[in-house]
């Protein structure tokens, strides 16, 4: 860990004023780890734990406003989330451990960084170290020819195949959340789909935040009437483990046909993976195994596996088929 300055911000204005050359620290569950590994070397940490962003509030339009500082466990166990957005509660509870969920925040989880083993090596991106275009653009990608069992099969580029590790984000992608930020140029909103960036040629740019911007809250749209939602996570062990494949589904079935559908996948993409292809394959179709399989095929049609992770394609399909079955099952 490098030496750094530490500032505790009492409010959003002060936090933004201190933001230059700084990183905000909320739960610290990713950032502190990465600082210990020399991956993150901020000159200053601005502690935002005092900011009044810890509320979950109903919006007048029937949506839900989640403060950036709401802890994962509080969000997962919130009555409103459990009732109206079960996919989000299930996704949160499938992630990490109770201790981590007690610390991790909504805003922080949006910024969770990849678990790529090469990215997390202290010397990655340095001469003599592993190539990592996220750490040092142009230094290469050691995962391409390395041990890449946990890596992504969707949204990859020849510069980066790192998986986005969050479970919460997968649910939020399916829920079409909207992210509210505040920065030197004022307030703005970012649709969830636009928040995380594909690696392309610039894998070091992971999201749409401008320098100095702070996530203040996340809005969930009004729950879709008559829809059911679910999250399924498949992984090597039963808990405290990242997804090999996961799926978030929000679906409404009328008369045996799918009338509303949102599909997002985790563990397989370089960002929380909204599958418009699967949605298109399902919309208006009968809620049956054939439709689900067709959707799974469509969702993974563009997948690009590497040496150790080809199995994720088949696993993701099975994950999606089962999730669709669960979300469309009539009680």
């Amino acid at each position: 860990m490098e030496t750094f300055n530490y500032v505790k911000a009492p409010n959003v204005e002060k936090a933004l004023a201190s933001a230059e050359q700084a990183k905000f620290i909320a739960g610290g569950t990713t950032l502190v780890d990465l600082m210990k590994l020399h991956v993150e070397t901020p000159k200053t940490l601005v502690d935002i734990n005092l900011l009044p962003l810890e509320k979950i509030e109903k919006l007048p339009d029937g949506g839900l406003r989640i403060g950036a500082m709401v802890r994962n466990s509080d969000l997962a166990w919130s009555d409103e989330v459990k009732k109206s957005y079960p996919v989000l509660s299930e996704a949160l509870l499938s992630g990490a451990s109770p201790q981590l969920r007690n610390m991790a925040t909504t805003g922080g989880n949006l910024l969770q960084r990849t678990r790529c083993m090469y990215f997390r090596e202290p010397n990655a991106g340095t001469p003599g170290g592993y190539g990592c275009n996220k750490r040092t653009p142009g230094s290469g990608c050691a995962a391409l020819d390395g041990f890449n069992r946990m890596h992504a099969v969707l949204g990859t580029s020849d510069k980066c195949i790192a998986t986005h590790p969050s479970d919460m984000c997968v649910a939020m992608a399916a829920l079409e959340a909207v992210i509210h930020v505040e920065g030197p140029k004022g307030k703005r909103t970012i649709p969830f789909a636009d928040f995380h960036k594909l690696p392309g040629d610039t894998p070091h740019i992971e999201n749409a935040l401008e320098p100095g911007e702070l996530i203040t809250h996340v809005d969930l749209p009004k729950p879709v009437e008559g829809a059911k939602s679910t999250y399924l996570k498949l992984r090597d062990r039963a808990s405290y483990e990242f997804a090999l494949a996961s799926a978030a589904v929000v679906a409404r079935v009328e008369g045996g046909h799918i009338r509303y559908i949102r599909v997002a996948m985790g563990g397989v993409g370089t960002k929380p993976w909204r599958s418009h292809e699967a949605e298109a394959a399902l919309m208006g179709k009968p809620a049956n195994q054939a439709s689900f399989k067709a959707a799974a095929l469509a969702a993974l049609a563009k997948s690009k596996p590497h040496k150790d992770n080809a199995f994720k394609v088949e696993l993701a399909k099975r994950c999606l088929v089962r999730s669709l079955k669960t979300a469309t099952a009539t009680a």
Partner: peptide, 20 residues
């Protein structure tokens, strides 16, 4: 390429949890 045990931590070298 390097001979490094690349999964040299408790997140990547997994052992059973109570749930298993």
């Amino acid at each position: 390429r390097t001979g490094q045990p690349i999964n040299n931590n408790f997140a990547d070298y997994i052992v059973p949890t109570m749930a298993d």
